[in-house]
Write a protein that binds this DNA or RNA. Structure first.
Lengths: 341, 341
DNA sequence: CTGTTAGCGCGTTCAC
DNA sequence: GTGAACGCGCTAACAG
């Protein structure tokens, strides 16, 4: 562990001069500066982050809070995390992975009290999330990936559900469909106020109406079995549905299975859209599903950048909405003529 | 930010006494101790990790190194990370997420030079990985999730490929199959010495031989297209193959598609096994695939524990192998009588 | 049993 | 342009 002092000794200068030379805090003669840099290089000097943080009150460490394993999107969580960590690294920051327990606020109080992190990045934000309120009150800088019901004044990056829904509707309407149904994530997620669950259905309904399509609520499903039941229930009531969006890969698998069981072929008899799943996952379905891929990496990056900018100073809150990417698979096609009543 | 001094002032004692009382470093009179604890509670005191780390040379922070996004297992990476972070938290440690760039060793040199982390947890270890050697030389404590070709003397937790392969072979042999083929991950991964790719095929071949089964090398595939081609190539040469293990979900999707195209039904005409994919993923296939689910969470936990134990003191290196869990889906069945020549 | 002192490695005043 | 001194919050010596 070579320290500033070692470098100073080797370069024959005072410690403070080395600090100044390396940080550019104050002017240092070119010659001595060179000597110092050389000495630092030879010794493989690395500033001790702890000492620096202790002194400067800035650790350049961000906490990334993520919920218990089973929650929400699943695989895409990793996308946020790695992208955020990478973006942070580019800006000279580190990311601390903080798994959340049952008592998120207590957890946060503890974590932020340690003086270890400069700010917090929130994932899986619910509409009425209590964490933002706590952090704001505690004066801890933070940003959200996702957003609360009323996120005014808070930095966040979230999916642009409205644009995404319009995209989806345009896709199916362009193919000639007149009716769009949607099977949402499990009721529990919806009732918990989980953003994507609540906003997806609302946005799809609105977009469909605006485009003159008939929107049908296909209920909720989380498992394969529930997905199958959802399709059955849906078609029993609305046999005129020719296009269906599904949130959640397992539910989609169930829908596909139930469709096959009913003798419906995808995409000939039914157009299927996966909502908020990666193209990688959409591709393992048969047929390959058309999907609205969430911009996980982009959101992670944005979240990290926003938070770091915020640490740097004031400025108005930044709020970014990014639409999903429509990746066309083999599950979309024009409706069968005469399928609708 | 309330500090030790504040607590000391409030409790009318010296700073060092507070430290001692809170850490149990040295005996403190019960009465004063109580007073101190009360004061600390009232002030909401949290020890500053930076100051503590600076003094004690132990930050209680672990770095979790993970490779660039696209690599290896994919989704399961998150399993390692969250489990490791949770296990660490239970033991009073934090986990720093460190994305790895193209120059892993330089990266490590930098990271460990910062004095920020006590130890390093390595993921996605290759057989001839250079990182363990560097860390050992640098005297940085570390543990691996996965293992090198010769991991003697190093702490690691890895998949028990031999046991997993025996399990797979027993499964198909128990159904009556006599021939087992294996489509491995992309050639690039194999040639890079990526542990799971290399060890899976070797273990399956050995296990098959021991059980008296015929083992057939089905080549490599990473994408859906490659998976399809792999099946075609395989069956052209060995039409007697009735059981097939595939590593990688996209490749498996291709195999399934190619099988359908050839008029082969799964599981009636072909038994399909997914290797090293989560049950969650296996479930979205149609039919539900039988899978060997990697013990990601368990490995993450073990890795974190081992590393922390190592920091605590010496002791012999701990090396743990954990088999995958066989989750039976709807893709395994007895071979069609007369299918083999 | 408790208080005083020193120092972890760094940045930042100040004098010079 | 440079150096000496102080303090960030904490732990670990040593006195008392």
């Amino acid at each position: 562990m070579t320290s500033l002092r070692d470098v100073a000794a080797r370069a024959q200068v005072a410690v403070s001069t080395v600090s100044a030379a390396l940080n550019g805090t104050r002017p240092v003669a070119a010659a001595t500066k060179l000597r110092i840099e050389q000495a630092a290089r030879e010794l493989g000097y690395r500033p001790n982050l702890l000492a620096r943080g202790l002194q400067s009150k800035r650790t350049r460490i961000l906490a990334l809070l993520f919920p218990p394993p089973a929650g929400g999107f699943g695989p895409t969580g990793m996308g946020f995390a790695t992208a955020a960590a990478e973006a942070a690294k580019e800006l000279g920051y580190h990311v601390l992975l903080s798994p959340e327990s049952a008592a998120p606020v207590e957890e946060l109080r503890h974590l932020t009290g340690l003086g270890l992190v400069d700010g917090v990045l929130l994932m899986e934000v619910r509409l009425d999330d209590e964490r933002p309120a706590f952090l704001a009150r505690a004066g801890v800088p933070f940003a959200m990936i996702g957003r609360t019901r009323d996120p005014e004044g808070i930095d966040y990056a979230d999916i642009d559900f409205a644009a995404t829904a319009r995209q989806a509707v345009a896709h199916v309407a362009g193919l000639g469909h007149r009716v769009l149904a949607f099977v949402n994530s499990p009721a529990a997620a919806f009732e918990a106020g989980y953003g994507p669950a609540v906003r997806s259905s609302a946005a799809l309904a609105t977009a469909a109406r605006e485009a003159g399509l008939d929107y049908v609520d296909g209920g909720h499903a989380g498992s394969r079995e529930e997905g199958a039941r959802a399709l059955d229930a849906l078609l029993d009531v609305r046999p005129d549905v020719t296009a269906l969006a599904v949130m959640g890969d397992r539910a989609a698998a169930g829908v596909l299975a139930a469709a096959a069981r009913r003798g419906l072929r995808v995409p000939d008899d039914l157009t299927l859209l996966l909502v908020l799943a990666s193209a990688r996952v959409a591709e393992i379905f048969h047929p390959r599903l058309t999907t609205l891929e969430p911009p996980s990496a982009e959101l992670g990056r944005l979240g990290a950048r926003m938070l770091i900018d915020r640490l740097g100073g004031g400025g108005p809150p930044r709020q970014r909405l990014v639409p999903c990417r429509l990746v066309t698979g083999d599950s979309s096609a024009p409706p069968r003529t005469g399928a609708a009543s």
